[in-house]
Simulated assay, not measured.
Amino acid sequence: MGALSAIPYIGPAIDFATSRYGLPVVVAGGIVLAYEGVPIGPLRYIPYAGPALASLVDGRVDREYAAGQLAERLLWQEQQRKALAQLAAKAEMKQKEIDAAAQAYVDQQNTDAVRIADLERAIRDQKDEDLGPQDHDNTAGACKPRSGIPARLSIGIDAVGR
């Protein structure tokens, strides 16, 4: 003990720490230091050195706080993944509906094209029947008015949209 007492600042500190009042203060200070750690402030944000220093001087409270932050971050990321998966499923379902509607439209267009071709052929056949053999020498016969489109063809054309 004599060698430590020779150092001017350490000697009185050790004497106080081993005294009747100093021992409870040192024990309480040790407990607070273990739980709270050494406050290093903005030093913990220095790249590479800050996290290493923080792991040495952080107390139990800081470690539990960091563990809670990590748990919350992981929970939030999992919820984000689930939400993105739901959005992707909804988008895929809507895209399937759009594709089905587009296919139905194309099928209807193909069906309409066949119906239109049949109706146009029927109109040509009807016109050919209406024209028949003409007498080019008879001008009165050449000016004879043509008959209109039959009602069944007109209704068929209207159903197709032309």
Rank of each mutant, 00 (worst) to 15 (best):
G148A: 07
G156A: 00
I31T: 11
Q103F: 02
E97G: 11
I14D: 01
L4E: 08
Q103S: 12
E92D: 15
D58C: 06
D107M: 00
A66L: 06
A49L: 15
L84V: 09
G22R: 02
R73L: 13
E92A: 15
K96A: 14
G41Q: 04
M1G: 10
A151E: 14
Q109D: 07
G141I: 01
V114F: 05
K96R: 14
K82A: 15
P8Q: 03
P133R: 12
V27C: 05
D128M: 05
A102Q: 13
V160S: 05
W76N: 14
I40H: 07
R81K: 13
Y65R: 14
M1E: 06
A71P: 01
L74Y: 08
Y45M: 13
I10P: 05
D158P: 01
C143K: 10
E92L: 08
A13W: 10
A142C: 06
I10A: 12
A102G: 05
R152W: 13
R115N: 14
D99F: 03
G11M: 00
I116T: 11
A91E: 08
A122C: 02
G50F: 04
L53G: 10
I46P: 06
Q77A: 12
L119A: 06
D62M: 09
Q108I: 01
K82G: 12
D137L: 06
I46Q: 07
A66E: 11
R146F: 14
V38Y: 09
I40G: 07
L119S: 04
P8A: 02
E64P: 04
Y65Q: 11
D128C: 02
K144C: 03
A100I: 03
V160H: 03
P51S: 05
A140C: 01
K127G: 11
S154I: 00
V57E: 13
L33Y: 15
A91K: 11
K96F: 06
A117V: 01
K127D: 08
T111W: 09
R44A: 14
D58W: 05
Y48L: 14
P133Q: 11
L23E: 08
S55H: 09
E120L: 13
L153A: 00
N110V: 03
